[in-house]
């Protein structure tokens, strides 16, 4: 039988992975909540951001954690522009079309990266990559713990932005009642683009947190998107606290079920949970019925 030490270690590990998933899910859930679309270019955006972090480190020697503010700002701009000038105009208000356009974007981004960087798997070797905190029963990776902290802080900041700022209030207004918001004088197209930008920014931060311990190849983002969908559903589509809680739960379930079932079938656990939540409580843990 497995000792409690191992299970505790797995739980801690699951929490740290979950925090990263939370960031990726945040972008997805925000865009869903406001635009009511599923952004299929989310994974490709993550991959692109990871490549930027990779370049910044290998060419300019900039540490991924130092890159966080610049990445967040830069990708906010990219996301804003994409929604404002590509997705929005091309979709002409049809959700089906948004789906195709985001798919088209992801094909372009993925293969553009493939053409430029080739398909090699690349990783960076930061000086603290292997340093760890010794807890006696396990070693906690320093970059992962730092990632955990940053991730929760970002979620908190996002939450404060939505609750406190005027833009945040406008976003929530558009999410709840688009027509009403429009009548109240809110520039809906602008708000859509801001939301899309925020989604891209969170993913860019996730990229900074992933790179010290993970690797990047032109298709790697997809590995995180499916799990992010699960989290979004579990937490309730559009809910930020839901996404964070859902992500931590999924992280732990994935980790612990991996111990008992084995890694491959452990993935099954996530999808079955996903289906059960959808069938039994489709609004998720924190979602309100619309």
């Amino acid at each position: 039988m497995l000792s409690p030490d191992i299970i505790l270690a797995a739980v801690l590990n699951g929490l740290m992975n979950g925090a990263i998933y939370a960031l990726i899910a945040l972008g997805l859930t925000l865009v869903y909540g406001v635009l009511h679309i599923i952004n299929f270019a989310h994974g490709a955006t993550l991959t692109a951001a990871m490549f930027v972090v990779f370049i910044a480190f290998t060419v300019f020697g900039i540490d991924p954690f130092v890159m966080i503010p610049a990445m967040a700002l830069g990708f906010f701009g990219v996301g804003y522009a994409l929604q404002r000038f590509v997705v929005g105009p091309a979709a002409q208000g049809s959700d089906n079309n948004v789906l195709l356009i985001t798919l088209g974007l992801s094909i372009m981004i993925e293969n553009g990266l493939l053409a430029v960087f080739h398909s090699d798997t690349r990783s960076i070797d930061v000086p603290y990559g292997f340093s760890s905190f010794d807890l006696g029963f396990t070693f906690l990776s320093v970059p992962k713990v730092a990632g955990f902290g940053v991730s929760l802080a970002v979620a908190l900041v996002l939450w404060v932005i939505l609750i406190r700022t005027d833009t945040g209030k406008a976003i929530r207004a558009v999410a709840r009642e688009r027509m009403g918001a429009e009548l109240a004088g809110i520039d809906v197209e602008h708000i859509f683009a801001v939301t899309f930008g925020l989604g891209a920014a969170t993913v860019a931060i996730a990229a900074c947190l992933l790179m010290p311990t993970f690797y990047v190849s032109p298709r790697i983002g997809n590995a995180f998107v499916l799990v992010a969908f699960t989290i979004v559903v579990l937490g309730g589509m559009g809910s930020i606290p839901g996404a964070v809680t859902g992500a931590l739960i999924v992280g732990i379930i994935e980790s612990v079920s991996g111990l008992f079932l084995d890694e491959s079938l452990g993935q099954l656990g996530i999808f079955i949970l996903f289906i059960l939540v959808l069938l039994l409580r489709p609004t998720g843990l924190f979602g309100a019925r619309t």
Partner: peptide, 22 residues
């Protein structure tokens, strides 16, 4: 020759197709 370029083009055409054929 370069792998990937054709699919980039494909993605772009897909978006254009959607934009002009609602």
């Amino acid at each position: 020759g370069t792998p990937g370029i054709d699919l980039v083009l494909f993605g772009a055409l897909l978006i254009l197709a959607v934009a002009f054929m609602r």
